[in-house]
Design a protein around this nucleic acid. Structure first.
Lengths: 135, 135
DNA sequence: ACTAGTACTGTAACAGATAAAGTACTCGAC
DNA sequence: GTCGAGTACTTTATCTGTTACAGTACTAGT
């Protein structure tokens, strides 16, 4: 959420989703990797392109995510055999990773419904749902 | 996301949504207040009850949110005129608050679509979408 | 030579969530 | 009469994910 609200910048904004995706990064990476192995920068581009460029998860955020996923054993890493030029670090999802991915997708669906219903609180007719108005 | 994944605790878990709602707290509070004025603890109960008790935004989280909303002028506060017993601090949404609320609901809908499409990356047939598989 | 893109990584700082603790009043049960 | 549970508000310390920023190093096009 921006420091100062400015309605003009809303549709043009390319950073609106920043904090709202928080907590989903690891699951998004697992989603990409459940399609097949990939390397750091390619995952970055896959995510960027999947949203039509509308939203970029920052590189630093992703590399932090890779570190977490490795630590938790949800992915494994190995260096590509490129001898010349840019070395590439590949990631492969593990069985544990697939289990967590499935789990997190379910959690997301529940969360999505939760937020939907909570935000709908403000869209219903006032006066019908809540009790205990001011004395 | 739990430190160690344990599939047994998933459906029984009452804390799964914790970090996944991050960033939406202010908007949820604005949703409640756009229904009419309310006080701190009542907002807490409204949110808890709206999810059937499935998820509680913690009191400390909400009071932090009230402070932010006040600072940004999105709500205004006043003390109830209860002379005896528990004093109640009431909150009322401002015009700026309504504008931000509408804005944030739109942002949520975009974010929801974004996460849906990103998580769907892992649900499509492997081999069709991505290119650049390992050399 | 220079610019842009590819590719990986570390560090410092920020912000939101929350556990924990505290204050203070009310009401029903024992 | 006091004890626990519930109502009601608040602060402090800590944790975690995100990101700005900086740095290294190679390639390709102009």
């Amino acid at each position: 959420m921006p420091e100062k609200f400015d309605s003009d910048t809303f549709l043009a904004s390319d950073a609106f989703a920043a904090d709202l995706l928080r907590g989903h990064t690891d699951t998004i990476v697992l989603a990409v990797l459940s399609q097949g192995e990939s390397y750091g920068f390619e995952i970055f581009k896959t995510i960027r392109d999947a949203t039509g460029g509308a939203y970029e998860i920052k590189e630093a955020t992703l590399y932090a995510s890779y570190r977490r996923l490795l630590k938790d054993g949800l992915v494994e890493a190995f260096w590509g055999d490129e001898t010349q030029g840019g070395r590439r670090k590949y990631y492969r999802i593990t069985d544990a990773g697939r289990a967590v991915y499935g789990h997190n997708v379910q959690a997301w669906e529940i969360t999505r419904g939760l937020i939907d219903s909570l935000l709908r609180l403000g869209k219903s007719d006032p006066g019908t749902t809540r009790t205990g108005r001011r004395p």
